[in-house]
């Protein structure tokens, strides 16, 4: 049609007019086509395919990170791990957590602590204040040790006696030794202290 106009009245219409008419026709045709493709009234979709792609990748990444972490510590005011320069990664093992308020074995509080970070003497062996063995902790760890021994026996491996101690940075040294002594009595012989990586030496 444009060509026809051009051949018929080339001298009447300028070049610009021909072009603008052609553009208008193309736009009209484009609009018609889009209108015919449009969904029925009341239905609308958002293109979320690309968003889905991104989210699936993020989800897989997060889940992978989640599963390879053998030791998870929820930091709070009562449990602030001390920083250290170590680069050893944690291994799956039994854990004892010493917070500012109590001693926790397998998510169960076995002994509460005083404000000074001491275990009540009634919970120690023989009710003696100078005793090193914390009785409820010993019972909980003994149970854990026998459970692990049974598991290793069935799996045909050796009980390694590995215990990870997750301790609050302000825990007094005396309590740490009491917990280690008690763990030793319950046949745990190798210890690991959980720390935050990225600490600075000598500060």
């Amino acid at each position: 049609m444009v060509k026809l106009n051009k051949s018929q009245s080339d001298h009447e219409m300028s070049r610009e007019e021909i072009i603008s008419e052609w553009v208008a026709q193309q736009a009209q045709a484009h609009r018609q086509e889009r209108k015919s493709r449009r969904l029925p009234e009341g239905e609308a979709t958002v293109t979320i395919n690309s968003l889905m792609d991104a989210m699936t990748i993020i989800l897989v990444f997060l889940l992978m990170n989640y599963s390879i972490d053998p030791l998870r510590v929820d930091s709070s005011d009562d449990l602030k791990l001390p920083p250290s320069t170590t680069d050893i990664n944690p291994e799956p093992s039994a854990t004892v957590t010493i917070t500012a308020k109590g001693i926790v074995v397998n998510d169960e509080m076995v002994a509460t602590l005083s404000a000074d970070g001491e275990v009540d003497k009634t919970k120690k062996l023989g009710g003696d204040e100078t005793a090193l063995q914390i009785q409820p902790l010993f019972e909980a760890l003994n149970e854990e040790a026998s459970r692990q021994k049974e598991v290793s026996r069935l799996a045909g491996s050796r009980f390694d006696g590995l215990l990870t101690v997750i301790a609050h940075g302000e825990t007094p040294y005396r309590l740490v030794t009491e917990v280690l002594y008690t763990a030793g009595q319950a046949e745990f012989s190798k210890y690991k202290f959980a720390v935050l990586k990225g600490g600075q030496r000598g500060t």
């Binding site: 030791l71 990664n89 280690l180 210890y191 690991k192 935050l196 990586k197």
Partner: peptide, 11 residues
């Protein structure tokens, strides 16, 4: 935060 460990021997 990244957690690490320090090995210690039986007391």
């Amino acid at each position: 935060v990244k957690i690490g460990v320090i090995n210690v021997n039986a007391p």
